[in-house]
Amino acid sequence: MRPVIPYVTAALLFGLGGYGVLRRRNAVLVLMAVELMLNAVNLILVTADTTVQLPHSGQVFALFVIVLAAAEIGVGLAIVLQLYRLRASVTVDDVPLDRPEGER
């Protein structure tokens, strides 16, 4: 197994995730891009687990990151839905403060 292949995959996925976080205006799409970045980190951890044979902690860290991602997505979506209830909009760069509630 050549460890460079999954490592480069993870690096490219992380770049794509960073691009998505900065590019997207919809908050749900920003959260999807954050998931891409977290998964890139997970792939690095799992590959390091099989590559650096000594302590074998990479898979444990990958599981921890998955749990943290689940918690993050729960709280993040609660915030996004609350913003939508208040302002009827989920754009992250332009929150309509003067718009009446519940109107699009």
């Binding site: 490592y7 996925l13 992380f14 770049g15 998505g20 590019r23």
Partner: peptide, 16 residues
């Protein structure tokens, strides 16, 4: 976004 994302992705890839 392309600058930051492409820079970090390709930079990490070159490093690895």
């Amino acid at each position: 976004a392309a600058l930051v994302g492409g820079g970090s992705g390709l930079g990490l890839a070159v490093l690895l």
